[in-house]
Amino acid sequence: MSEPIPFTVIGGFLGAGKTTLLNRLLGGAEGRRFAVLVNDFGALDIDGGLVAVHGGDTIALANGCLCCTIGDSLVTTLLGLLERPERFDHIVVEASGVADPGRIADLAVLEPRLSRDGVIVVVDAAEVRARATDRRTGDTVLRQLKAADLLVLNKIDLAEELPALRDWLGVQSTAPTLEARHGDVPLDLLFGLDRAGASGHSSPVDAFASWSYQWSEPVERADLLAMLREAPGEVLRAKGIVRFADTPDRRSVVHLVGRRLDISDEGPWGDTAGSRLVMLGLRPVLGSLPRETTT
């Protein structure tokens, strides 16, 4: 069986900026084939010149990406997508404005052809606190914040009291926050690097960096976890294959998206040279971490 496809869910309330983010993704895919499941094509801003085939409930783009409308059932739409002959590098689902995106991400845990990547929740900086106290929708908003692995605090230019909002968000969610205007966030931070470990996107913003670690000797588990956790909210993604000192004959896959860290066993270590980990985060933090360790 081929390698499972990373599966990302984008949640957030109506008007938070999910579609803006998706438009940026489709416009900046640059060689990676995303399949994007959305509620409504109409909201997408797809350049007519980009459309290769419009097939009713799917739009194939010239850059290899595919958009599907979810219609009435995400389950059947997703299964239908997995039956298609094309291979995709990443599947992204736009959750409805009232859905719990964490529940949708669970599908990737149940489906061997998918690997759960992250739950990204887009937050409207100007609206979220009022939304969160609404009698009918406040609980839905708070559930979404709690489900997030990574928050995108959007429209910060419209926020009235940004420091207080940051404090409040910190109480509602333990996920690290990326602040943005008009959904402008580095896509690599949201969707990771491609398989080769390289950024597909040109001109990363100044504050953002990727760092590559290699260890020839087995790594102490506690040391690595400490390194990842001591920079909470700053190391936003990490992915790698690690040979831990306590299980030196196993390949452990380390995968971090925002606040969520998964370590899974991927079989015997074999004759791979050494451990390798790529981290994405904010430059000042990464700069203070040890570049290489040889325990």
């Binding site: 309330f13 109506l14 409805s96 404005g97 009232v98 859905a99 719990d100 009918r136 929708t137 609980d139 839905t140």
Partner: peptide
């Protein structure tokens, strides 16, 4: 039990 879920919510 906490309140249920919206499919189509008040805002949509």
């Amino acid at each position: 039990t906490p309140n249920g879920v919206w499919n189509v919510g008040p805002d949509d």
